[in-house]
Design a protein around this nucleic acid. Structure first.
Lengths: 135, 135
DNA sequence: CAGCATCCTGAAGGATACTG
DNA sequence: CAGTATCCTTCAGGATGCTG
């Protein structure tokens, strides 16, 4: 029996890697904007502040849980501000911070790339699927 | 009993939205590059072709399953090519296609933004956590 | 060497019900 | 209105063992 199995070595490597990854700024960013709801909220807030219920309607398919959870995350990261107006009933507005706004170009760049190259991707995909299906 | 409950309406909205989302190029792209292993593989292949086992070593914490699965996905989408050299033992090289290469600037832009703004994020996060903890 | 097939667990996220 | 709390399902992804 070896001092360390291959599995253990891999596990160690992963642990080290995970630690490294957790500290990687690019990774943190991608983890954030890769979230489906994050990009949708960012877009929904792009032209100005919105109320909680407005966001829920604009984004249509979102559950309360995910909406709240995502907004909290964005607030925590300084991407949006949450403003409570203690009227009756309560009113809560969300708005992008400068930091949140600075993220928009990146999201748009991604959109740009996607729209430019998506056909290539689809073509490649169709070709790949075709070759695989008949042997 | 209403013709349609709120839950049903939300479910319908989600179904419609999911369909819409699935067809959204930007969404497709984000789904791809948000994958942890995708960005790592892209980077690993940035300076030239690599063998399967090399990738496994360079990316350290990856499991065979995810490595293969991710590479297949990238190949299918036309981001990488897979070249088999039928020697003994077999040798397989992966290389970025022009399409794959065209994605690198975007990944780097993300990295750039992250490195520029990550401190702001961390500061905001610390502030947020501080206010919440003794409320 | 470069995979594939299988099993299994943890975590994300939707549905639902309740509250200030 | 704007959430919070709970339960429950789904499934991404790791471990393991086998193959051309």
């Amino acid at each position: 029996m070896p001092t360390q199995t291959a599995a253990q070595r891999r596990a160690d490597a992963r642990a080290a890697y995970d630690a490294y990854m957790a500290a990687c700024p690019a990774r943190e960013l991608l983890d954030r904007i890769s979230d489906k709801w994050v990009t949708l909220i960012l877009n929904a807030l792009a032209d100005g502040p919105r109320r909680y219920s407005d966001l829920g309607r604009i984004i249509a398919g979102v559950s309360q849980k995910m909406l709240t959870q995502t907004l909290r995350g964005l607030e925590r990261d300084g991407m949006v501000t949450r403003t409570v107006t203690p009227s009756v009933p309560v009113r809560v507005d969300y708005e992008l911070t400068p930091l949140g706004v600075s993220l928009l170009p990146l999201v748009r760049a991604a959109k740009e790339w996607a729209e430019t190259h998506i056909e290539e991707v689809h073509t490649a995909r169709a070709a790949y699927d075709a070759t695989g299906e008949n042997g």
